[in-house]
């Protein structure tokens, strides 16, 4: 059995998930009781629960799809835990890649992690990298709500642009690697080549097409699925190319 998906790992995952659910139930019950004290009708509180659950279904499946994407390298359980607690696919994929780079693991997330020490390091980097907000909130939450919040509102446009620019810069590093990055000469699939560029472009094209479709009035339900669907279709292109093109073309990497 793969150590990444052992019984121990699944028990760990279940424990974390139980913690999240209990915490959420606690806040929900307390807020419900307060709602009744404020005189909010029970029907309003119930419909809030129902509408929020329904609203969540599609994005939750989209998050599940990203868990499956990372599972090829990290197994199912660690991405499951990480995307259930503080999780965000961009963070988790970047943190995992940074940890694998630190060990000189060529190909990074494109190949299954075989070494337990490397796997543990990935778990540390993913966990510690995302922990800061949970430390800041207990210390500064009241001040933020009172004072700083209004300042951010005034500079919201600039803050949004800088935040987007930070993500764009992060994504650019991975896109650049797929176009002109070199891997190890003895490993196939870890450097820029026919496959990486084909999959990259396919993913972008699918995303543009699906996003356009989502702007149609009856197709807005597709929006949460745009990213994972584009990703899976691009991976489908990888499978198609590997089955149809000659092996020397499919495996060609211009940077090694």
């Amino acid at each position: 059995m793969d150590f990444k998906e052992s019984t121990f790992m699944y028990l760990l995952g279940c424990a974390v998930v139980a913690f999240i659910v209990l915490q959420s139930v606690f806040f929900l019950v307390k807020a419900w009781k307060q709602g009744k004290k404020l005189g909010i009708p029970a029907s309003t509180l119930k419909s809030t629960v129902i509408s929020s659950a329904l609203f969540t279904i599609a994005p939750a499946f989209a998050i599940l799809a990203t868990v499956i994407t990372l599972a090829g390298s990290l197994g199912l359980v660690l991405p499951w835990i990480r995307l259930s607690v503080i999780g965000n696919i961009t963070y988790e994929a970047t943190a995992a890649q940074a940890a694998l780079d630190g060990f000189g693991v060529s190909g990074g997330l494109n190949f299954p992690v075989q070494d337990k020490a490397v796997f543990a390091a990935v778990a540390w980097v993913m966990s510690v990298g995302s922990v800061l907000p949970l430390i800041l909130l207990p210390l500064f939450m009241r001040k933020i709500q009172n004072k700083i919040g209004s300042s951010v509102k005034k500079n919201a446009e600039w803050a949004d642009l800088m935040s987007a620019a930070a993500f764009i810069g992060l994504i650019a590093a991975f896109i650049s690697r797929s176009v002109s990055g070199a891997g190890k000469p003895e490993i196939i699939g870890d450097g820029a080549g026919v496959m990486s560029v084909s999959v990259l472009l396919s993913s972008m094209i699918f995303m543009v097409i699906i996003s356009k479709i989502c702007t149609k009035p009856k197709m807005t339900w597709l929006e949460p699925f745009a990213m994972p669907l584009s990703m899976f279709l691009a991976l489908g292109v990888a499978v198609l190319l590997s089955q149809t093109l000659p092996a020397n073309i499919v495996k060609f990497e211009w940077r090694g």
Binding site: L109, F174, I175, D190, M195, M207, S211
Partner: peptide, 24 residues
């Protein structure tokens, strides 16, 4: 399906990048 798992990074960041490219 093995080739698909080897290209998860371009697939993931291509889709993310296209989303941001459209807006910014």
């Amino acid at each position: 399906f093995a080739p698909a798992f080897q290209q998860t990074i371009p697939a993931l960041f291509g889709a993310l990048g296209a989303g941001y490219l459209a807006k910014h």
